[in-house]
Design a protein around this nucleic acid. Structure first.
Lengths: 343, 343
DNA sequence: ATGAAAGCGCTAACAT
DNA sequence: ATGTTAGCGCTTTCAT
């Protein structure tokens, strides 16, 4: 029913080879014939068949996107936005994205995603933390991988990561510039490299400002960095340190937990305690007051990952380059100048 | 590099046709040869090439999934869960899902999604409301469509819809059973068929319980059904109707807005006012108190849509059947017996 | 600069 | 019940 390359060739009075050369922007084709062919393509509403192309080129034109189901289902859209970023970027390119989730407890006896078994993808983007056995098994198959927001020691693939140190520094500097000296830090799971880097950023900023680091002001644990964690961490921190005037929470979920704690305990935000988060999720705007935070460009990270993947595929090189995505300070109303405190 | 059907044929000492018959579970193959072939397949780690298959069968094995970007980006994951449901269902089947978003203002001059231009999908699932021109243009191409959570008059495709009338009845009955008689209704955009059906459910339940319908107790408008809408609707409703003891809000977003209004005005929930929502989004559990609501099985709806699509493709019939997905009452702590009111 | 033709891996007549 | 074979639509040498 649809036009094929033969139809175009016939219509343009050339060979199929010529048509192929034209649609692939190849070599030295007379502008004249090129024009002719392009015209026929337009008239016949011709689109090359993917399967025919793939069959001969031994490529699939698909990129796999793998993440754990709990990451996909996270209440605050984070990884789904990264996914959308890859889709945006793939749109103009010649790729389709095949998304699949795996169980968080994916074990070595679980079957690999169907698209890797069937070799239906040219490369795979892995978003967020996944079990190591998944990585190992895909690597064995020699399928190119790009990681987004996750770093493992064992790999030599492109990495797209948040510049967490920069973000941690930024957040802390914001508080410092507002005149705060006693800045609480709520880190959540300190095993998580991203969160730990934010801690490093915090320490670096203090050092640069010649503010002595006080370990009593930091609350790290090894629990999932969610609202409850933020609530409990705030409790520990503030019950024992009356002098704290502001808090940097390592992600917005925990920052929201902190705000809940503050409200439950009749602190005024930001007059009594300034609070800054990290991530910039939608919920921030629904809060009272709206949360000052560090914005992570999720869509952009996805786009970056796809670009890295395409580059990897085109050059056929496993460049072990690390792409650090810059973050941005978003000042809203949960932080205020320390001089205005308890005014 | 990878094994082909020829390799398997050679290894099993049969023809490629036989191998093909085996992998397609065809006809009368001797159990003996079948076993032999299967064994070779296993040994050689053979997987049929998708592109080769697709090329000859004129199918792609892909299903497109289209939704507007604002639906994809909705803070509370709704459509992304429906998408995941299709992916779950496709996983065991032989399909891949290709997701793409379109602009909410998608116009007739905008290019169609690439996978429809290139005919890279066998069928398309459309989730949520989309511009009519998109539907028309895809229909012209004779690509099968299945709708999820959206109904248009013009189509004759399978529809997967929430049983909104049932849900509206359920919610209202819950309140009635708790002894409430003066039940406020907050409907949001009454142009939206889903929301309007919930209103119908509300009215039906009242009628069945012989509670007179009071138009002062309902607040319908034509604005987007979000938190702010809920807040403002609650304001209108409660300022003028002191006798209201409970509210049914047409979705959880609006219910949350109602709760905010109640808190801002020193109502106790649920002692002063019981409140029930609709959708069952994650946020419900983070509320104080957790929100009683009607659960919509999002994952299941996606799975249902994919099954409808597959059926459509297999039978090649455009059955205009409407699949009504049942909902479920989830009782949490935002509703209470009216007798216990103001105790 | 363009054409002829082989072949990618598979399916489906048609033969046997 | 199984084998032979002709394509599916495209890319890519190799000729011209």
């Amino acid at each position: 029913l649809n036009a094929t390359i033969k139809d175009v060739a016939k219509h343009a009075n050339v060979s199929t080879a010529t048509v192929s050369l034209v649609i692939n922007n190849h070599a030295r084709i007379t502008p004249e014939t090129k024009r002719k062919v392009l015209k026929s393509i337009k008239i016949l509403n011709y689109y090359p068949s993917r399967s025919a192309r793939d069959l001969v080129s031994k490529k699939t034109g698909n990129i796999g996107f793998i993440l754990t189901d709990d990451h996909f289902l996270r209440t605050e859209p984070f990884y789904t936005r990264i996914f959308l970023g890859t889709e945006f970027e793939a749109r103009d390119g010649e790729y389709y994205i095949l998304l699949t989730t795996i169980d968080s407890n994916f074990s070595s006896t679980d079957p690999l995603p169907r698209f890797v078994l069937e070799r239906s993808v040219d490369g795979i983007i892995i978003a967020g933390k996944v079990p190591q056995n998944l990585i190992d098994r895909i690597s064995e198959l020699k399928i190119p991988i790009v990681f987004v927001d996750y770093e493992t020691n064992s790999n030599c693939c492109p990495l797209v990561l948040i510049d967490n140190i920069q973000g941690g520094t930024m957040a802390t500097n914001h508080l410092i510039e507002l005149g705060h000296k006693n800045i609480g830090f709520i880190g959540g799971d300190s095993q998580h490299p991203s969160l730990y880097d934010r801690f490093n950023g915090y320490k670096q900023a203090l050092e640069k400002a010649a503010i002595p680091f006080n370990n009593n002001f930091v609350e790290n644990n090894s629990k999932y960095p969610d609202r409850q964690n933020g609530y409990e961490s705030a409790e520990k921190l503030l019950e024992n340190n009356e002098e704290i005037t502001s808090v940097f929470a390592c992600n917005d979920a925990m920052a929201i937990g902190v705000m809940h704690y503050l409200k439950d305990n009749a602190y005024k935000i930001p007059e009594d305690i300034s609070i800054i988060g990290f991530d910039d999720v939608e919920a921030d705007l629904m809060l009272d007051p709206p949360l000052t935070t560090i914005r992570v460009p999720k869509i952009e990270m996805g786009a970056e990952a796809l670009r890295a993947m395409i580059n990897c595929l085109k050059t056929n090189s496993n460049s072990n380059n690390k792409i650090l995505v810059p973050v941005e300070l978003i000042v809203r109303n949960s932080t205020i100048n320390n001089k205005d405190k308890k005014s």
